[in-house]
Structures are given as C-alpha cells and as structure tokens.
Computed example of a mutant assay.
Amino acid sequence: MATPTRLPLSAFIICKNEAHYIEPCIRSLDLCAEIIVVDSGSTDGTLDLLERLREEGFPIKVFQRGWPGYAAQKQFALEQCTQPWCLNIDADERLDLQLREHLPRLLAEDEAVAWRIRRRPFLVGFGYTPTYVFERPNLRLVRRGAGAYDLSKRVHEGISVEGRVKSARPGSLLHFRPLPLDEQILKENAYSTLKADQLFDQGEKPRWAKLVFNPPYYFLRLYFGRWLFLCGWAGFIQAMTGAVYSFMTEAKIWQRHALIAHPSKEPPLDGI
C-alpha cells in the first residue's frame, strides 16, 4: 500500500474473533502512526488477517491477553500506546471520510485534552444513518497520559479525564454490525446483565418508577431525540431495542433484590 502521511496518533482495538469486521476498521486507520490490537483468543483467522495487513504496511502491534473485562482490557490497550494522541475504536467501527479529513485539526487543538466523537450505526434494512442521525457522542480521542478507564465498570466503559473535553464535528465513527433482531436481543441481554450486576454491586435499589418509565423514556430519547424516526421502521426497531435493554436492566435489578428477600422455593403441595 502507498504509505500516507502518518499522524501522531495511536489507535487501539480490543477484539476476539473479528475476522468478518476488522479489516475495514484497520484500513480506515491508515493515517495512524500506530495501531494497537489486543486479542483475547481469536480462533477464526483474525490474527492471520492482522498479520497480512501488517505485511501490507499497516503499523499494527498485536498483543495476546486473556479476558479481564472490558474496562481492564481497554486500559491495557491504552497503556501500550506510544503516540501523543490515542483513539479508542472497536473492530466493527470505521472512520468516515469527514472524520478522517478533520483528524489533523483535532490533534492540533491546544485547549482540548480529549474529544467526544459521534457514532452512526448501520441499521438492517436501511444502511448507515444520515450524518444528522447519530448516537450520543462518546469520549474516544484522548491525549496520552491524560485519562484512564474506570475499572469498576463492567459495561459501557469510558475514559475519565481531567481537562477540557470538546465534541468533534463534523465526522463520525461508522458502526457496522448488522445483526438480525434474534442475535441483537441476545447481545442486549448480555449487556443488560453486566449493567444490572454493576449497579446491584454498587447498592442500586429497585425503583418502580425506573422500571415503568425508563424504557419508554429510552425509546423516546432515541426515536425523537436522536432523530431515528427519520430512518423508517429500521429506526423504530433500533429505538425499541434500546427500550428493551433498559427494561431488562431495571427488571434484573428488581429480581436480584427479590431473590434475596424471597428465595425461590417451591411450596409444599398442601400449601397451594
């Protein structure tokens, strides 16, 4: 490949069995001086693919490490970065053209220690959402040494920083994992379990108001607040899936407390 002008940027990725998704991710990072990949046991050819891309000239450094949890694995990956700026990106994400064009400006910013970046999902039956339909911007780009992950978080982990954080516009991360609803619900179920366990361990009590009102609020926030209504039925399903995640999280917190207060034991037959 032709070697582009590299930016003082380390991209870091954690992965396992991402052979179907990671190559476009890596190719969108050709402006990075360094690409850190921490693999936790791929068996689907991901490592062979990364080696092929490295031989093409991509500055990939692969680390193999057992799975300690999302936050701990990303913290390890962040610590391997050597460039002045660090970009957290998932294997199923790619930089869109606008973000690639504006990366030099973001890295040249003197005031910010970190940047929040928008993400646009690929919706089954629709495609990538338009530039004005995006998920909540998340902190993804940080100066090296200016932040770290909160290791107490089991899911929705993020970098905590001290200093000024700005929002990057224009530009987005493109999220390409077009799972049918059957598989997406399994993913939401797993994430809601991690979230419920995290909140339960932190002493979160069940509240009927959250159980009743959080799911419809979640739906409305996504459908209207994030303009998913402009994406047809695909947008409706995306927002409703988020509401299901919210409901399962609150319901699991309620059930964890209920099982402590009222352990599930079958009553004697003469008692019913």
Score class of each variant (00 low, 15 high):
Ala190Gln: 13
Ser192Ile: 06
Glu79Ser: 14
Gln184Val: 02
Gly145Lys: 11
Tyr128Asp: 10
Lys166Cys: 02
Leu95Cys: 15
Cys25Met: 04
Lys16Glu: 11
Phe229Ser: 03
Lys16Val: 05
Gly69Tyr: 06
Phe247Ile: 07
Ala2His: 11
Tyr128Gln: 01
Ile35Cys: 03
Leu47Lys: 02
Arg105Lys: 12
Tyr191Phe: 11
Leu269Asp: 10
Tyr70Thr: 02
Gly158Phe: 13
Arg226Lys: 07
Thr129Glu: 11
Gly235Lys: 11
Ser172Gly: 03
Ala77Lys: 11
Leu95Asn: 12
Leu95Tyr: 06
Leu228Met: 05
Pro216Cys: 15
Glu101Ser: 14
Lys16His: 04
Pro215Glu: 15
Asp44Met: 08
Ile22Leu: 02
Val165Ser: 06
Leu50His: 04
Asp96Trp: 03
Arg54Gly: 10
Ser160Trp: 13
Arg105Ile: 03
Glu162Cys: 10
Tyr149Ala: 10
Asn138Gln: 07
Asp48Pro: 03
Gly57Tyr: 04
Leu228Ile: 08
Leu97Gln: 14
Ile89Thr: 00
Lys210Trp: 04
Tyr21His: 12
Lys210Cys: 06
Ala258Met: 12
Gly203Glu: 13
Thr43Glu: 13
Cys25Arg: 01
Leu186Phe: 09
Gln184Ala: 15
Ser192Trp: 07
Val155Cys: 15
Phe126Tyr: 13
Arg207Asn: 08
Gly41Cys: 04
Arg169Gln: 08
Arg154Met: 15
Ile36Thr: 02
Phe219Ile: 11
Arg52His: 04
Ser42Lys: 01
Tyr245Thr: 00
Glu135Lys: 05
Gly232Phe: 05
Lys61Cys: 08
Val244Glu: 10
Lys205Asp: 03
Pro180Glu: 14
Ser192Glu: 14
Lys187Gly: 01
Gln83Cys: 05
Tyr218Leu: 05
Leu186Ala: 09
Lys205Tyr: 08
Arg100Lys: 14
Ser40Met: 12
Glu157His: 10
Asp30Lys: 04
Lys265Ala: 08
Leu31Glu: 09
Leu222Asp: 11
Arg6Thr: 09
Pro206Glu: 14
Val161Asp: 12
Gln255Val: 07
Leu53Ile: 05
Arg226His: 09
Val244Asn: 07
Leu31Arg: 12
Arg65Tyr: 10
Asn88Pro: 00
